[in-house]
Nucleic acid binder design. Structure first.
Lengths: 157, 157
DNA sequence: GTATCTGCAAATTTTTTGCCAGTAG
DNA sequence: CTACTGGCAAAAAATTTGCAGATAC
């Protein structure tokens, strides 16, 4: 089901680090493992607390440094949610993010915008040279869904 | 062309504040004016520096408080870009945001996702009750567009 | 008149940095 | 070996808070 397992991830990390002129260390491996396999979009501090159980001596500064390096190498992405928190995401498949307005939970929504939609955006963007996008959905998760029964218009901005 | 002018904005602000049980003050008016008419998506500090020329005594804390209030009243939106900066946006028409990967400039792209696309998202999101979305486009602005000639695939996440 | 504001400064929170010993390659 | 790293503690940046005097209504 999963196209990646711990060993494969480790190889990818090792190689990517090397390609970018960085060294493979236990700390980086642990940070990467947690980010890549987490589906909760942890904050830097979350990662720190998690990873600390595995690499007891690791410092928060190291976690920050490792995360930044992973982002620079393209192995992770930094998400700045509209609620203001910075989260990290190690997923590589295209997907969107759905944030619950009530409980703040962030979940992945697989899929990507249709080609025609992207083409339309490219037109709308005029001279802007479109390379990628990040779509944050807002609404209510199944746990928080308020007692309203309709699904009327989602709106941009 | 513009549906709003300073006086109209001021009325809107006055009324909206009142509806929400807040008072109209010069500081809030100045903050609102700058955010509503700015097309540069300023940070809180940007707003502070701008507004200070008009309301010399205003403090940064007041700007933060005013901005938060405007956001709560729906008169402005807080954008947390994936480059990490928090910006404020006073536009009300639906639009997306395009961020240049080279110079960091943020520009508006008018338009919204098509109904069919939103319907598709709603399906993909399954039990998530979709209410709205925020789309951040990334790429290169006309000033920075690199010497690459193609427009190959924009990708999610 | 009075509850709501503002400005100030201090407190938080989040993230970054400098430095020296430690370690990967 | 030697340059890149990690940990630590301090610094910096970003945002929030408490409070006393000022002000909208």
């Amino acid at each position: 089901m999963k196209s990646s397992n711990a060993k494969f991830d480790d190889l990818v990390l090792r190689q990517t680090l090397q390609e970018n002129g960085h060294r493979y260390t236990d700390q980086r491996a642990a940070v990467f493992k947690h980010v890549a396999r987490s589906r909760v979009h942890p904050t830097a501090e979350d990662v720190f607390l998690d990873v600390r159980t595995e690499v007891p001596g690791i410092s928060l500064a190291t976690v920050y440094k490792s995360l930044e390096m992973l982002v620079n190498c393209g192995l992770a992405k930094k998400l700045n949610l509209d609620d203001g928190s910075a989260r990290f995401c190690g997923r590589t498949e295209p997907h969107h993010h759905a944030r619950c307005l009530a409980c703040g939970a962030l979940s992945d929504v697989p899929g990507e915008l249709g080609d025609s939609e992207v083409a339309a955006l490219r037109l709308q963007a005029k001279t802007f040279h479109l390379v990628g996008y990040e779509l944050e959905l807002t609404g209510y998760c199944s746990d928080c869904a308020p007692s309203m029964g309709n699904g009327a218009g989602a709106s941009a901005n």
